[in-house]
Protein backbone atom coordinates (compact mmCIF):
# COMPACT_ATOMS: atom_id res chain seq x y z
CA UNK A 1 0.00 0.00 0.00
CA UNK A 2 1.21 3.45 -0.86
CA UNK A 3 0.97 5.96 1.96
CA UNK A 4 0.20 9.64 1.78
CA UNK A 5 3.84 10.37 2.61
CA UNK A 6 4.97 8.21 -0.28
CA UNK A 7 2.56 10.02 -2.58
CA UNK A 8 4.17 13.27 -1.47
CA UNK A 9 7.67 11.89 -2.09
CA UNK A 10 6.75 10.57 -5.53
CA UNK A 11 5.06 13.86 -6.41
CA UNK A 12 8.24 15.69 -5.47
CA UNK A 13 10.37 13.33 -7.57
CA UNK A 14 8.04 13.97 -10.51
CA UNK A 15 8.00 17.72 -9.79
CA UNK A 16 4.26 17.83 -9.23
CA UNK A 17 2.23 19.49 -6.50
CA UNK A 18 -0.79 17.73 -5.14
CA UNK A 19 -2.99 19.74 -2.84
CA UNK A 20 -4.44 18.24 0.31
CA UNK A 21 -7.92 17.85 -1.10
CA UNK A 22 -6.60 15.79 -4.01
CA UNK A 23 -4.11 13.86 -1.96
CA UNK A 24 -6.58 11.44 -0.40
CA UNK A 25 -8.39 10.78 -3.64
CA UNK A 26 -5.13 10.30 -5.48
CA UNK A 27 -3.75 8.01 -2.80
CA UNK A 28 -6.79 5.79 -2.91
CA UNK A 29 -6.90 5.72 -6.72
CA UNK A 30 -3.22 4.85 -6.90
CA UNK A 31 -3.79 2.12 -4.35
CA UNK A 32 -6.62 0.65 -6.42
CA UNK A 33 -4.32 0.55 -9.42
CA UNK A 34 -1.36 -0.83 -7.46
CA UNK A 35 -3.60 -3.49 -5.94
CA UNK A 36 -4.67 -4.52 -9.41
CA UNK A 37 -1.06 -4.54 -10.58
CA UNK A 38 -0.14 -6.76 -7.64
CA UNK A 39 -1.69 -9.71 -9.43
CA UNK A 40 1.63 -10.01 -11.30
CA UNK A 41 3.07 -11.47 -8.12
CA UNK A 42 1.00 -14.59 -8.72
CA UNK A 43 3.44 -15.43 -11.50
CA UNK A 44 6.83 -17.01 -11.01
CA UNK A 45 9.16 -15.20 -13.39
CA UNK A 46 12.43 -16.65 -12.11
CA UNK A 47 14.93 -16.79 -14.95
CA UNK A 48 12.75 -14.87 -17.42
CA UNK A 49 14.80 -12.28 -19.29
CA UNK A 50 13.06 -8.88 -18.98
CA UNK A 51 11.88 -7.57 -22.35
CA UNK A 52 12.53 -3.93 -23.11
CA UNK A 53 11.97 -3.95 -26.87
CA UNK A 54 9.13 -5.49 -28.84
CA UNK A 55 11.34 -6.20 -31.84
CA UNK A 56 14.98 -7.24 -31.58
CA UNK A 57 16.85 -4.54 -33.48
CA UNK A 58 20.54 -4.09 -32.64
CA UNK A 59 23.39 -1.78 -33.67
CA UNK A 60 21.40 1.13 -35.07
CA UNK A 61 24.10 3.70 -35.79
CA UNK A 62 24.58 7.09 -37.38
CA UNK A 63 27.68 8.30 -39.21
CA UNK A 64 29.71 11.06 -37.55
CA UNK A 65 28.77 13.75 -40.05
CA UNK A 66 27.77 17.29 -39.12
CA UNK A 67 24.37 18.50 -40.28
CA UNK A 68 23.43 22.15 -39.82
CA UNK A 69 21.96 22.82 -36.39
CA UNK A 70 18.87 24.94 -35.84
CA UNK A 71 20.90 27.98 -34.83
CA UNK A 72 20.34 30.14 -31.77
CA UNK A 73 17.27 31.99 -32.97
CA UNK A 74 15.25 28.93 -33.91
CA UNK A 75 16.43 27.03 -30.86
CA UNK A 76 14.98 29.77 -28.67
CA UNK A 77 11.86 30.43 -30.76
CA UNK A 78 9.60 28.44 -28.41
CA UNK A 79 11.27 29.48 -25.16
CA UNK A 80 8.89 30.85 -22.50
CA UNK A 81 11.72 33.09 -21.27
CA UNK A 82 14.41 33.40 -23.90
CA UNK A 83 16.86 36.19 -23.12
CA UNK A 84 19.41 37.13 -25.76
CA UNK A 85 21.05 33.92 -26.73
CA UNK A 86 19.98 31.98 -23.63
CA UNK A 87 17.08 30.18 -22.00
CA UNK A 88 16.48 31.98 -18.74
CA UNK A 89 15.30 30.19 -15.60
CA UNK A 90 14.71 31.18 -11.99
CA UNK A 91 17.74 30.68 -9.81
CA UNK A 92 18.43 27.33 -8.25
CA UNK A 93 17.96 27.66 -4.49
CA UNK A 94 20.26 25.18 -2.79
Amino acid sequence: MISKQEVEYVAHLARLEIDDAQKDKFTSQLNDILLYIDKLNELDTTGVEPMSHAIAVTNAFREDRIVDSLGTEKSLANAPDGRGEFFRVPKVIE
Binding site: I66, S69, L70, F86
Partner: peptide, 15 residues
Protein backbone atom coordinates in the same frame (compact mmCIF):
# COMPACT_ATOMS: atom_id res chain seq x y z
CA UNK B 1 24.24 15.57 -35.98
CA UNK B 2 25.10 18.82 -34.20
CA UNK B 3 28.72 19.90 -34.05
CA UNK B 4 30.63 19.32 -30.81
CA UNK B 5 32.83 22.34 -31.43
CA UNK B 6 33.64 24.37 -28.35
CA UNK B 7 32.96 28.09 -28.34
CA UNK B 8 30.07 28.67 -30.74
CA UNK B 9 27.39 31.28 -30.00
CA UNK B 10 25.20 30.04 -27.11
CA UNK B 11 22.51 27.58 -28.18
CA UNK B 12 23.73 27.61 -31.77
CA UNK B 13 24.91 23.99 -31.86
CA UNK B 14 21.49 22.69 -31.00
CA UNK B 15 18.74 20.81 -32.80
Amino acid sequence: NCSTKFGGAPNSHAC
